[in-house]
Simulated scan of single mutants.
Amino acid sequence: MSQIRIAVIVGSLRKESINKKLALAVSGMFADRFALQRVEISGLPLYNQDFDGDFPAPGLHFKQQVEAADALLFVTPEYNRSIPGVLKNAIDVGSRPSGSNSFGGKPAAVIGTSPGARGTALAQQHLRNVLVGLDVLAMPQPEVTVQYQEGLIDGEGRIDNERTQKFLQRFVDGYSTWLIRTLGA
């Protein structure tokens, strides 16, 4: 395997999303052996079992992007102590119709940032519970919950805090090592 392809799925639609900034920052920390591609979820229709027989084009495109990846990186905000509805919808679209789960068998990591003191710990735990049901192997450690402060990460993905930079680099290094071992690459 020459490059390990990682699909990055951000569970926020907000233009200035701090989780989009986190995804951008982390994506720039991976070695050349990894190719990260952001998979957009904003155009997905709300999942409805009625269209299982004639799946909408945006849903099929999303599923194809997930299937083309070797691994997954979920970057999630925390809304009301859980994952955002748009992220759950993307997971539902990608795992349906029954028998065509695009996520199955893929290794994944889960990270996120929030202004709250706990970061996105509860949302990440909920997401891991959902992923287990989809046959996704979620990396257990290290967990990355970043308490976001204004200016921590700029729009270009640059991190203003050396401690945070090192913390995120440890995650990237750990995830990289885990992926190579898990994928046998």
Rank of each mutant, 00 (worst) to 15 (best):
G155M: 08
L24Y: 02
A121Q: 15
K15P: 06
S42A: 14
F62Q: 00
D160F: 08
I83C: 12
L60M: 13
S98V: 14
A117L: 15
V136Q: 05
Q169H: 07
R33W: 15
V75F: 10
G105F: 15
A138W: 08
A123L: 12
G53H: 11
A25S: 03
L22A: 02
R170I: 08
N161E: 12
V10H: 00
Q141I: 09
P140R: 02
P56I: 07
A71W: 09
G119T: 13
T76R: 06
H126G: 08
A123P: 08
T76A: 08
L137Q: 12
A90Y: 06
A7D: 04
P45H: 05
E162S: 11
P58C: 04
M139I: 03
Q165E: 13
L22G: 01
T177R: 15
K88Y: 07
T177L: 12
I41W: 01
T145V: 11
L72D: 04
A117N: 15
A25V: 07
E67L: 13
S82L: 13
N89F: 06
R96C: 06
G85R: 06
F171D: 01
Q3H: 15
K21T: 01
A123R: 03
I83M: 13
G11P: 01
F51L: 05
I6G: 00
R181W: 15
P77Y: 10
K20I: 03
N80P: 10
S42Y: 09
G157T: 05
F62G: 00
K21R: 15
A138D: 10
L131P: 02
V172E: 02
V146M: 03
G151E: 03
F34G: 00
R96G: 03
P142L: 03
L44G: 01
L168I: 09
K106G: 08
V110D: 07
L122Q: 15
L46I: 09
G133F: 11
L168M: 08
E78I: 07
E143I: 00
I9C: 01
T164W: 09
L183Y: 11
F171V: 04
E40K: 03
G155W: 11
A57P: 06
V66H: 01
S114G: 11
F30V: 08
I111W: 08
L46E: 04
L152Y: 11
D54P: 00
A25H: 02
V130A: 10
I153L: 04
L44D: 02
Q147W: 11
A185C: 14
V93N: 01
P58Y: 09
P77H: 08
K88L: 14
E143M: 03
P107H: 10
D50M: 09
T113S: 14
I111H: 07
G53I: 05
I180M: 14
V93R: 00
L13F: 12
G28M: 06
Q125D: 15
V110N: 06
F34Q: 02
Y79S: 07
D154T: 06
T182Y: 12
A117P: 12
L60S: 06
D52E: 12
